[in-house]
């Protein structure tokens, strides 16, 4: 079985993103870029499934600018077998990403597609579900446990009320949550070894994908600031402050 993993290039999670003063966008020139943290977890899971003999090949995919080859590089250094960069200089919305993945799934015929539950830039949380819909295949979102047994995957999902377990027939699309695993660190020799791994670049325009970029962002604003509060010196003062607000 082949596993397809999405690696989105995003602003690193440690960067505190600022809105440009004129509201035209966010200032991200020169900031640190990384693989979306959820996607690293997806890749780690794929590698573990391969190591457990449940999968034979792990293919990482990034849709983005030429620079997103860096994210393919780190995926290959982590242990993926090969990488596909779908090149586009314009940021794309989840429906377009899902349509691109659909094309790749038709071509690669993976048994499992592992994506992050959300990209930490757009916080959309859509691509996996959209891909599953377009393929008319099962989805198991927000996975905290994935077990593959023959043609079936048993997935535990983190839902609002607790943990839900589903059984899905493969091929299926799974989106991963934070507690699925802890991704391995990349060691220097891994980077060297990865240099010779196959990398393919496809132009998004060449895939014949209809754009799903329907939403137009007209304005960016910083979040409303909370008023700076007071610091109380001890418990009686804290209780007094809460009483003054009518909260106790």
């Amino acid at each position: 079985m082949k596993i397809l993993v999405g690696l989105k290039r995003v602003v690193d999670y440690t960067v505190r993103v600022q809105v440009k003063p004129d509201g035209s966008g966010v200032a991200i020139d020169g900031v640190k870029m990384s693989v979306n943290p959820f996607d690293e977890i997806a890749l780690e899971e794929a590698l573990r499934l391969r190591e457990a003999g449940k999968a034979t090949e792990v293919v990482v995919v990034s849709i983005g600018p030429q620079l997103a080859m860096q994210q393919i590089d780190s995926g290959l250094a982590m242990g993926a077998n090969r990488g596909i960069l779908v090149k586009t200089e314009q940021p794309i919305q989840p429906l377009t990403a899902a349509r691109v993945f659909q094309k790749l799934v038709e071509k690669e015929q993976p048994g499992l597609v592992l994506l992050g539950k959300q990209a930490i830039d757009d916080d959309a949380n859509q691509t996996a579900q959209m891909l599953a819909a377009l393929l008319d295949r099962p989805q198991a979102t927000f996975a905290s446990k994935v077990e593959v047994d023959g043609n079936v995957a048993r997935v535990t999902r983190e839902v609002d009320v607790g943990l839900e377990t589903l059984e899905v027939d493969l091929p299926a699309v799974v989106s991963v949550d934070l507690r699925l695993n802890t991704p391995r660190f990349i060691k220097l020799p891994d980077i060297m070894k990865a240099k010779s791994k196959p990398r393919e670049t496809l132009e998004l325009a060449s895939l014949g994908v209809e754009s799903g970029d329907h939403l137009v962002t007209t304005h960016y604003a910083p979040p409303p600031k909370r008023q700076k509060g007071v610091v109380v010196k001890d418990v009686p003062e804290l209780i007094g402050a809460l009483k003054a607000k009518g909260l106790l």
């Binding site: 602003v11 505190r16 993103v17 600022q18 809105v19 966010v26 919305q93 989840p94 429906l95 930490i120 830039d121 757009d122 916080d123 959309a124 949380n125 859509q126 959209m130 799903g212 970029d213 329907h214 939403l215 137009v216 962002t217 007209t218 304005h219 960016y220 604003a221 910083p222 979040p223």
Partner: peptide, 29 residues
């Protein structure tokens, strides 16, 4: 396309939503 996490309605097709963990609020149409 889906508009995720609507936090305010401007008109029938225009909404506000958070991105970047709430570090920015965008208006989308």
């Amino acid at each position: 396309s889906q508009v995720s996490d609507v936090m305010a309605v401007e008109d029938s097709h225009t909404f506000k939503r958070p991105i970047y963990a709430g570090n920015a609020i965008v208006t989308v149409k």
